[in-house]
Simulated scan of single mutants.
Amino acid sequence: MMRIHQLIQKPTSLRVTVPIVLFILCFFSFEVYALLLQRFEGNEKLPPLSGNFMHVREVLTQEKPKEAFRFAVFGDTKSTGTFEKIADELKEEPLSFAVFLGDFVRRGTEGEHAYFKAELAREIAFPFPTFFLAGNHDIDTNNFPISRFEEVYGPSIFSFTYQECLFVFLRILDKPYSTKESLLFLEKLISEDASSRHRMIFVFSHIPPPVSSVIDAREFEGSEEFVSLVEKLHADYVITGDYHGYARVKKGNTVYLVTGGGGAHLKKNKYGCFHHAMVIDVSEDKVVENILFINRNEDLEDRIERFILADLYPWMKGHFVIIIFSNIILITIVVWLGVSIRRSIQQTLLS
């Protein structure tokens, strides 16, 4: 017992104690930064012009007729830097609207969507209506179900008419999710003879149907029926993501575009492997497909912010007692080491 008391009383080397104290202070600083980031950015709402809600669609449907317009599409944007570069370019374009084709977060959790909404509000900040498809990474049956997705982003299946063109947004996902509602929505449009009332029809879905071996498409329920209904609808374009790259296939009178190079790691395929977005120009007699090519970019600040909002803070929130207990221990260590440093300095001055 006497030896332990003497060991405690013995001044500790400054070479050991100072780095330890600095490390603990850095830990506390990072913890405070995480809490402040969550406080000021972790509870962002969607910008006014973002979401699949009726008030956003009405911004377009109430516009006056024009000779031509353009819109942007991009898929699988889950990145920390690459899509921000794409967004900077698109904000300079005279776009009518833009569409996220799904998989804009790494996984379906509240934390991931909190980070995405913060980026959307503070950095991406599109000045035009922006719509969102549900991708397989955006939802989770337990942590972020379809009902929660629709609460945050609006209906996952809808349509609107803009400049005499019909835009159809579907929820096409693989198991365990059903495509039945989307297929019924297409059947309803066909029964209403939608093609006779619109000069062009654009259909958007996350997963592409297997219309060509060029497209590395995952299987989903009712894929053959989907292609058949698209044909009956007389759709001009089916625009999808999921495949991390670019592909274009024409089947019958329908062009199938895959644009999933918005930021996620690219597929290891010799065809269409590049980061990009697409800008579609629509006029009375033609459609022009423009590819916006972007080099991959990683932003350290974004990586840190995503780690905090999507991973660290949710863990801290779920382990509150552990955090408090750890902080008490670390504060105790800092105080004890502070006393030891003071003794070491005094001993050095006296010697």
Rank of each mutant, 00 (worst) to 15 (best):
S228G: 13
F226V: 03
L7M: 01
N327P: 04
F202C: 03
G318E: 13
F274E: 04
C165P: 01
K175R: 10
K180M: 02
K250Y: 02
E112A: 13
G263Q: 01
L133S: 04
Q62Y: 02
I86K: 01
F97T: 00
D285Q: 10
W336A: 07
P176M: 01
N297R: 12
M2Y: 07
F167M: 07
V18Q: 03
V18Y: 06
G135P: 06
R3H: 12
A118W: 02
S159T: 05
G263Y: 02
G51P: 07
A235L: 01
E89R: 13
Q6F: 08
I304Y: 12
F132T: 01
V238P: 05
E67R: 13
P314K: 03
K66M: 11
K250P: 08
E84V: 14
S178E: 02
F274D: 00
Y246L: 09
V287K: 14
D193H: 15
N253E: 15
F307K: 08
P209F: 00
I331Y: 13
F307W: 12
L49T: 04
F320E: 11
G108I: 00
R171G: 11
E112D: 10
R15F: 13
F40C: 05
T348G: 04
L101A: 02
Y246M: 06
L35K: 12
E224Y: 11
L229P: 10
G108M: 06
Y162T: 06
P11G: 05
K78C: 07
Q346L: 15
S205K: 04
R148L: 15
F167R: 01
L37H: 03
H234N: 14
C273Q: 12
F53M: 10
F53T: 09
D242S: 11
V18R: 11
T77C: 08
K270Q: 09
A217N: 09
Q62L: 07
S29T: 15
P65N: 00
P94L: 02
Y256N: 01
P208S: 13
Y243L: 12
M2L: 09
P48L: 13
V227Q: 05
K66S: 08
F28R: 03
K78P: 04
Y256E: 01
H137V: 13
R3V: 15
P94M: 01
D140M: 03
P314W: 00
L173K: 08
K286L: 07
V230H: 00
K180Q: 14
I8G: 04
S205W: 08
L37Q: 05
T179V: 01
L101D: 06
H275R: 00
F28V: 03
T80I: 01
G318D: 13
V288S: 09
I294S: 09
I308K: 06
D138F: 02
E123K: 15
P145V: 04
E301P: 00
S351K: 11
I294L: 07
I294D: 07
H319D: 10
R148D: 11
